[in-house]
């Protein structure tokens, strides 16, 4: 599948990187926003439940990373 052009870039983080993000934000993994494993972007990246996906968002404020945890479904 081709990544959709209008959707901001999604990227699966390594487990260690995910842990570092959770630590930096002082937030337990289960308190992160969620993304379904059946989501098109998750499928595209072949992300499995428990993986963390980093999304680079472009807002009027600038570019920043938004994180989601893949959940079964």
């Amino acid at each position: 599948m081709e990544p959709l052009k209008l959707i901001p870039k999604h990227e699966v983080l390594s487990d260690s990187a995910a842990k570092a993000v959770a630590k930096k934000l002082n937030t337990p993994i289960d308190k992160f926003p969620k993304i379904l494993a059946s989501d098109v972007q998750a499928k595209l990246l072949n992300a499995k439940p428990g993986n963390m996906i980093a999304i680079s968002r472009h807002d009027p404020a600038g570019e920043y990373a938004y994180y989601r945890i893949v959940v079964p479904g």
Partner: peptide, 16 residues
């Protein structure tokens, strides 16, 4: 940005 249960809403407030 977090809510009362500690759930993350935004990793950095307002994106900046």
């Amino acid at each position: 940005a977090k809510d009362a249960s500690g759930a993350l809403i935004q990793s950095i407030y307002g994106g900046d």
